[in-house]
Amino acid sequence: MSLSNGSPATAMAVANPWAVVPSLGNLDAYISAVNRLPMLTLEEEQQFGRELKDNNDLEAAGKLVLSHLRLVVSVSRKYLGYGLPHGDLIQEGNIGLMKAVKRFDPDQGVRLVSYALHWIRAEIHEYILKNWRMVKVATTKAQRKLFFNLRSMKQGFKDDADTQTHRDTLTDAQIETMARQLNVKREEVIEMETRMSGGDVLLDPAPSDDGEQAFGPIAYLADAAHEPTAMMESKQRDVMATQGIAAALETLDPRSRRIVEERWLKVNDDGSGGLTLHDLASEYGVSAERIRQIESAAMKKMKKALAAYA
């Protein structure tokens, strides 16, 4: 039996299986076209399936795909709540349908529609998980199953007039119900609900309308302490504070060195500093002003030595 026994559009499908299907760019026209394509009978499906399996007949494969495009449209509608374009969902589902047709064995006694459902859903699920959030909400097979079942059950709670809470978050009773029905731990339901309810946040947001840079997480996520330039500057400061100061002190005469050490470098156990200007003035038999002048000259000399050392 052949698809050519139907409408003129079907006859075109035999010559060019994709000629009757418009581009997904015009989604309404596409859906209308695929809904007009005739379904295959069991005998036709088995015939085309054997032609593809035994002879790699691509025309037969095209007929199998065409007759099930409406199935992809129907399945894709169930995933519109994720905020992704319907055309993209259909496109991914069509990929799953083609994979199913390629692997379809007509001798297994299973209709293609039942076999293809798994592949269509799998491709749509994969697309949603890759594109719904920048950061994946589900990575393992168990998490993926929980992700889609949890969303479906949560929507069911909202639609149920008797249990509707007018809240986005789940109640303890709803969490317990989900965990029991999905055969998972209560903590797993809570963790997945938290992942699903959390939105994406721009690390580096665009400037505001007044031209000022908006504050974003990137401002406090960056580890300035380990930034290469900062690390080099910190290392240089450490070297200057140890080896550099020691080299600069070597350029001073003994009196100037002692004055600098007592005034700036000495710290007693009680936290106090060294000798005062008057203490040093009494020790050297000069005025406090003279000690200050010596100290000032010594500091200038050390700055030159530090500059040369750097």
Rank of each mutant, 00 (worst) to 15 (best):
A33T: 06
E283K: 13
E289Q: 13
G274S: 10
Q243S: 15
E193C: 03
A15D: 12
R290L: 11
S23P: 00
V135F: 12
L66G: 02
S152N: 08
L221M: 06
V267D: 03
A298Y: 02
L129F: 12
E45S: 05
V189R: 02
E176N: 12
T251A: 00
R258F: 13
G274Q: 08
A281C: 05
K53P: 07
I259P: 00
L277G: 05
D253H: 04
E212L: 14
V267F: 03
M134D: 14
P254G: 04
F157I: 05
A281N: 06
D223H: 00
D223P: 00
Q164C: 08
H86T: 10
R121G: 01
G62L: 04
K63H: 15
D57V: 03
K235P: 07
I291T: 07
K235I: 14
M153S: 09
A33L: 01
V135K: 11
S4L: 12
A19K: 13
L306E: 09
Y30E: 00
L249P: 01
I120K: 03
L80Y: 10
E59D: 12
L27S: 04
A206C: 03
E289M: 11
H278L: 07
Q46L: 03
E44W: 04
Y127E: 07
N183A: 14
S7Y: 11
G216S: 02
E176Q: 12
E227T: 08
L97C: 09
F215I: 07
P217N: 00
A9Y: 07
E295H: 15
V113M: 03
I120M: 04
R290W: 10
E176A: 15
G244H: 03
V34I: 06
E51I: 04
L265K: 01
A11V: 10
E44C: 04
G244N: 05
A246M: 07
H86V: 08
S76N: 10
L42C: 07
S256K: 12
A308M: 13
F147K: 00
L89R: 01
N55Y: 10
L71K: 15
K301W: 01
V260C: 02
M299F: 09
K78W: 09
D168K: 05
N268F: 05
L66S: 08
L24G: 00
G211S: 09
E191Q: 10
K130T: 13
E126H: 15
M240N: 09
S67N: 10
L24Q: 01
D210K: 07
L129I: 14
F215T: 07
V267Q: 09
D168N: 11
R121F: 10
N55F: 12
I218V: 02
L252M: 01
F215M: 05
H278S: 11
R50E: 02
L275K: 12
S296D: 14
S74P: 01
Y127I: 09
G198N: 15
W264E: 11
L280G: 01
Q164V: 14
I218K: 00
G87L: 07
K63S: 15
V110Y: 09
S67Q: 08
E43S: 14
V110G: 09
G49T: 02
V101R: 10
A298D: 06
G244S: 08
A161H: 01
A305L: 06
I190D: 02
I245A: 07
A297K: 15
K63I: 15
A138N: 05
H118I: 06
V184N: 11
I95D: 08
T163A: 04
V267M: 02
Q91R: 06
V101D: 05
A298Q: 07
R263N: 06
G211P: 05
I291H: 03
R111P: 06
D172M: 08
